[in-house]
Nucleic acid binder design. Structure first.
Lengths: 251, 251
DNA sequence: CGATAACGTGCAATATCGTGCAAAGTCAAT
DNA sequence: ATTGACTTTGCACGATATTGCACGTTATCG
């Protein structure tokens, strides 16, 4: 087997399965683990994948602390993302926020779904490249690296030209009286602008966001019609939101 | 057996099986491996296949998807990217095109460089997330997934508000008389708009781009002041560009 | 903290590569 | 028919790439 062919196959497997294991690959290709390790090392040097102990992961759709945040309660986020994806009907125009949960959302879209996704997050845009049915519209602006989203006047201006069915919002805090909040002023402005241009706002809130409040307020909690939470969230936690007229969806 | 017959048969086998092995071919055609190697070398020079250690793979420089394209001559692209990175001075405002070479360029920027990067490629934006000194401005628009760049009227409009020092352009063809060209009409418009807003245009051209022409022309070759090519590019290939007044940099 | 798996590195065996060169074949002009 | 330029092919030889193994180190997990 050709070396470069093997490397291509590794990348294909990685793309298909989201991760590869060195030992498994060595058995599949009938070469020593040393060779696989060398391949992985070289592919990592070219930036085509991310090397980890025992195997490799796809080349960071994001980087640095963003990747670390992606590992916080991944199952819950993944479940919430799947639930959110099920709300999208063919032909709709939807807005995806930035943040780890929305990247998951992008990944969990059905492969065949025909729809338009508007986003100000390069990570989300890149995640949607493999979805042939999805038309992607990017909002430009100054890149706020911490969240990997575009912000600023250019973003606000571009958002004004959009009208969407649903906005899937990610936040750092959802609180019955303090409302929806986030950690950056610019981001708050952008989220507010996006919310204003969507017929319906859906908030994706993993457990640690509930009843938390961050410095910059986006809107009252019930500016969002729907709140998607993890499946095992106690009713006591969600009742105050239901009392505000919000629909609570459990993933 | 005629040489050209054999070459055609090699190409047919390559197309049929996705890869060819030098040793196998030499046995099949009952010629020495040297002869096969010569054939493969010549076919590779014509761009009809991609030579790899032990045999050859299909060339499809533009055909394959983004991930596959990233594997084409990674060392050369990496070298070209490093050379390009060295042209950027602190404090400058530079434009990065989309494409695999420019993603490499983003990765190879010195970690400490202070500068502003304007780009219409989400991939480039994401690649720059861990460069704390780099301010990133994204041009929004409709995502053209094949190249992972934003295009369309929104992109053109946003570009009009920018003025940059240098535009690092990636192309699919650089030809002395046919000019700079690319495979998509929308992309060509965007590249032209970007070129118009930069004081200097630098073209990054890995070997397979030189003397190639694609359907959509961006501008005459000497609209770019500088051409960065791989280090071992023969002078005979670059002379026509030098004759047009372009500065040739070897990586 | 210890066991185990995974890792990186150096090394040697092998395979493959590129180049120079000579032998054989081709072909047109003499 | 002969000559001479040219191409094709195989071989020799040194250079380079790939691979598996040995050995010491590091990461992971209970």
């Amino acid at each position: 087997m050709l070396t470069s062919h093997r490397k291509q196959a590794i990348l294909a497997a990685l793309k298909r399965e989201g991760q590869v294991v060195a030992k498994t690959l060595s058995e599949a290709f009938e070469v020593s683990e040393d060779t696989i390790r060398r391949d992985l090392r070289e592919l990592a040097a070219e930036g085509l994948l991310q090397r980890v102990h025992g195997g490799a992961l796809p080349s960071s759709p994001a980087a640095g602390d963003f990747v670390q945040r992606q590992q916080i309660s991944p199952n819950a986020k993944s479940a919430i993302a799947r639930k959110a994806a099920s709300l999208i009907s063919p032909g709709q125009v939807v807005i995806f926020d930035g943040g780890t949960t929305c990247v998951q959302l992008a990944r969990h879209l059905p492969a065949t779904l025909q729809a338009t996704v508007v986003t100000h997050s390069p990570s989300v845009a890149v995640a949607l490249v493999d979805h042939p049915g999805i038309e992607v519209v990017m909002i430009g602006g100054r890149l706020f690296k911490h969240s990997i989203v575009n912000v600023g006047a250019a973003a606000i201006e571009a958002i004004g030209h959009i009208r969407a069915d649903t906005y899937f919002m990610g936040v750092t805090g959802v609180h019955p009286t303090e409302g929806l909040s986030t950690g950056d002023l610019e981001e708050a402005y952008v989220k507010r602008a996006l919310a204003a241009r969507a017929a319906e706002v859906v908030v994706l809130a993993s457990a640690e966001k509930l009843n938390a409040a961050s410095p910059y307020v986006i809107a009252p909690a019930n500016a969002a019609a729907t709140l998607i939470v993890d499946g095992d969230t106690p009713e006591a936690v969600t009742d105050p939101f239901a009392a505000l007229g919000m629909v609570i969806l459990r993933a």
